[in-house]
């Protein structure tokens, strides 16, 4: 009996290490494929250059980094206010009827495949922008709009949780001083929940930066740095997905190197969310 238990525990432990091995393997393979060309081109030739011309051997991804930042900031600017408002609504004032539709609705938003979002963006958002604004519709704005919708569930769920975990004592104290419910939300509850809200924004950002299919279907994917939100742009993820199909040699290495940069950005964001959620609470 005893030895049998030992075996079970051993096997389960091995299974539990799979996640660790996977992370190690991913890191190892992405870096081993991508690092050589990064070292070869140096920081200036790779991260510091906007010239991406695989045929002539120029692999500067600065343009894609800028594109990723532009589209992500746009998505945050559009998605976070709506998402945060939904979270406050759900946590504080929702009437049962709307809540009963809104919750499954947000779950559903999280479940729709990114390629379907991309398809919707391509068939509705892009033509709409083409008609009413300058440019041909494939643009930073189109990407930001679609990503804003896609990050809503992340922002809503995590913000709502952090708002709900604010102690009821604070609410009572504020109301007892004659504050309105809204004043209480604005001046006590949201500040007390701010670390969780910040975490939700960062996770939303991570989702936006990592999103691939929806983005390449609506942003136009040109490597030139965009001058306005109506210009097309290419993201890091888009760069990999579009060219991976036919890339070979140095070109393929450069795509893996793009993956290295993407990987590093996401890791930094993940680290900062764990830091944020660790120091909960204090409002200054």
């Amino acid at each position: 009996m005893r030895s049998h238990e030992k075996w079970v525990q051993g096997i389960l432990f091995i299974l539990a290490t799979t996640a660790v091995l996977t992370v190690l393997a991913i890191t190892f393979f992405i870096f081993s494929e991508g690092l050589p060309i990064m070292v070869d081109r140096g920081v200036t030739g790779f991260i510091g250059s906007t010239r991406w011309e695989p045929l002539s051997g120029s692999f500067g991804i600065l343009g894609m980094i800028i594109g990723t930042i532009q589209i992500t900031l746009g998505a945050i600017a559009l998605g976070v206010p709506v998402g945060l408002a939904c979270a406050v609504y759900l946590a504080e004032i929702a009437d049962r009827r709307l809540e009963k539709i809104l919750r499954p609705g947000i779950e559903l938003l999280a479940g729709i495949p990114s390629v379907v979002y991309g398809f919707f963006g391509l068939s509705v958002v892009v033509p709409f922008l083409r008609e009413h604004f300058p440019g041909n519709g494939f643009s930073i704005l189109a990407g930001s709009i679609i990503l804003a919708i896609m990050i809503l569930p992340t922002v809503v769920n995590i913000s709502e949780n952090s708002i709900r975990s604010v102690p009821g004592d604070y609410r009572s104290a504020s109301l007892a001083l004659g504050a309105s419910h809204w004043q209480t939300i604005l001046r006590v509850i949201l500040p007390a929940a701010r670390s969780g809200i910040a975490a939700s924004v960062i996770l939303g950002m991570g989702r936006a930066i990592g999103e691939t299919m929806a983005v390449i279907m609506v942003t136009g994917n040109v490597t030139k740095v965009a001058g306005s939100i109506f210009d097309p742009a290419r993201t890091l993820t888009g760069n990999i997905a579009i060219e991976m199909g036919y890339a070979a040699g140095e070109h393929r290495e450069a795509l893996f190197a793009t993956g290295v940069i993407l990987f590093l950005i996401i890791m930094v964001l993940n680290f900062s969310t764990t830091r944020f959620s660790r120091k909960a609470g204090d409002v200054k």
């Binding site: 991913i26 991570g206 999103e211 993820t237 990999i240 993956g259 993940n270």
Partner: peptide, 13 residues
């Protein structure tokens, strides 16, 4: 960490 890695990175891997 695994939950946060973008799908395209999984694709490359």
């Amino acid at each position: 960490t695994l939950a946060g890695i973008p799908s395209i990175i999984f694709g490359l891997f």
